[in-house]
Design a protein around this nucleic acid. Structure first.
Lengths: 198, 198, 198, 198
DNA sequence: TATGAATGAGTCTTCATTCAT
DNA sequence: TATGAATGAAGACTCATTCAT
């Protein structure tokens, strides 16, 4: 009787460890050796599930992105318009350890994406998804008259996205300044743009 | 007597090559060996001017930062208030090849800064300088009644900085969308915030 | 399932090669690269069994020391008192190729021990073991009235040890003079001290 | 008018620095770079006086040996027989910092001599000189009836030499045990051999 | 399916040495 | 005579990857 193993579960366990290493020691020092050591699996085992290091890293960033989207989905249940926008923004910012780690990983991939078309496409897709989510809620908000009918929503969506990106990466680069509280104040400040757009 | 060489000049020549490699192949593939190969210098030559790789990389990011500040300084000659803010912003965005490369390098360093305190401090300092520049011009603008007296300038400065950062890195990650024109439109959009603050 | 190998056995095989190189070309020229070349193993193979060069060298001297002690142990079976002392002394001196090599290696380590506390401690321990062995047999000899009751044994033990060390290293430095025969004569001369101590 | 320089004086100054480095960090870490740095001379300057590193090291050991012989010569002025032997022995042992350093250097050369005929010859000569000095004083002692007429002096000389070598290197390897006092006690013990030979 | 033994390319770094000035 | 710029060989070490078992 063959051993029953949940391949996806194993894969995910490995990916979690990789994510942790990426966030703490960086991509360069994230070695298969160390992943094997920390996961308790053998090097060959890891190779069995991930063809090579490149794939392992790529899958990890994808997993991070999916996780953050799932988190947003769940939190956005039942929320609409500007309230949803606010919630989405809050969930994006690096105010918890988990999300700080996500940002750290993301920023490393930006470095890669800057010089690799493949990674760039991956990141580009990710941004596009966020943009769509934001746009939908903005449209909802406009339909509900939270935002005036004439307002052009795309630049508004971009603006929010850029502000969140800028605030997020600044929060990673200046952690002692951008405490949770200051991030929230900055978010309040951002949200005023939408109130004014009303 | 030995040949007299201008060490700083040599150092800068090497740094330029390193900067070019960082922007084109990325930090991971920027090895001393490859630097030597591309520059035509020997490995020992590079060691002659830089104690080790770490120093080489650190000096490169510093050089990039200084260059962009010098560029801003020169362009800002004779400009004041919101006009200066607009010029500074324009000069920050990755709309030319040189500046695109600067952003690419910067993003690589963000990746490093995310997992290395030393690099983080370096980046942090850099951001602080930009913040101060922006704040000074905002104060000027407020003194000249371009911005109303009561407005709190620090959040405004942060807001601009984050928007520029967010727009800049998005422009690198989605180059085909964020053409020079679209970046300028986005900047127009950003500047409206200051007009409204009037 | 991977090939099953006896790590200790592999380690010992490598150590033997290292020992041979230390005795023939010296510590300075005993590089991992050269070890690999001479042994036919790859550099990675060696790394597989020894964490780094330091460990490789340390293990080698330890192995040499253990081997010589084991050899003494076996030869001393059933011998007591001054006869045991004589046997131990004979086994210590560099009169065979194997033991000549051991002395050469030992002398290399003295050079290291002179400038490295860690190596010094290792050598110090080794000397202490020899001292204890000698002392035990001297006590035996004294109990059997081979040595007079009143004689202080510690200086006697030290004296023997120093004479053996001095003779041993002189035999390496002046091999054409200190032939096997002359070493044995010198040992006879040394043993007289104990007869006089009777 | 050409600068008047005392080449020998410069050479000696360099050699002193090399001796110090050999005794403190060892031959491997005694680099020309560091010698240049510590001496204040340029690398090229050193090369000017010493053809290569090998020569530099060889000259240094020779200088050490000459220095110790000169020291003995001076101290032995006016002394004869066993008193001279005692003085010579005392001057040989590593009881001062200077002589400890000499021993450390000497022990490193033993390591080299063990695997290099050239170095071995050098050391061999050095030992031969010591042997001759000892023999002369022993003959003197015999002539003065400090030692009985029939005694064969060569084995006695060898014995002393080996005991001094053994004690000396043990004193380097176990410095905390072989304090100055214990070395002197050991020397007293050694000298008894000669008293008995009377 | 899973292991870990084995490889060798590639990394940074150190250094003795050469040589134009 | 004296300098230090420049070279390149060689060092230890790391690591992704292959493959027999």
């Amino acid at each position: 009787m063959p051993k029953i193993v949940d391949h996806d579960e194993r894969r995910e366990r490995i990916v979690e460890i990789v994510a942790d290493m990426l966030a703490t020691v960086g991509a360069e020092r994230t070695t298969i050796r160390e992943i094997a050591r920390q996961s308790g699996y053998s090097r060959g085992f890891i190779e069995h599930y991930f063809h090579n290091k490149e794939e392992l890293i790529t899958k990890t960033i994808r997993w991070i992105n999916e996780r953050s989207l799932t988190r947003a989905d769940m939190a956005l249940q039942g929320k609409t318009g500007l309230e949803a926008i606010r919630t989405f923004s809050e969930l994006t910012l690096p105010v918890t350890l988990e999300r700080r780690n996500e940002w750290k990983i993301r920023m490393q991939f930006w470095g890669m994406a800057a010089v690799s078309d493949e990674h760039r496409r991956e990141q580009s897709k990710r941004i596009h998804v966020s943009e769509k989510i934001i746009l939908e809620y903005l449209e909802e908000a406009q339909a509900d008259r939270e935002i005036e009918p004439g307002v052009d929503l795309l630049p508004l969506a971009h603006s929010l996205l850029h502000r969140l990106y800028g605030l997020g990466c600044n929060a990673i680069l200046r952690p002692s300044y951008f405490t949770r509280q200051r991030q929230m104040q900055a978010l309040d400040y951002i949200m005023k743009e939408f109130v004014k757009a009303r």
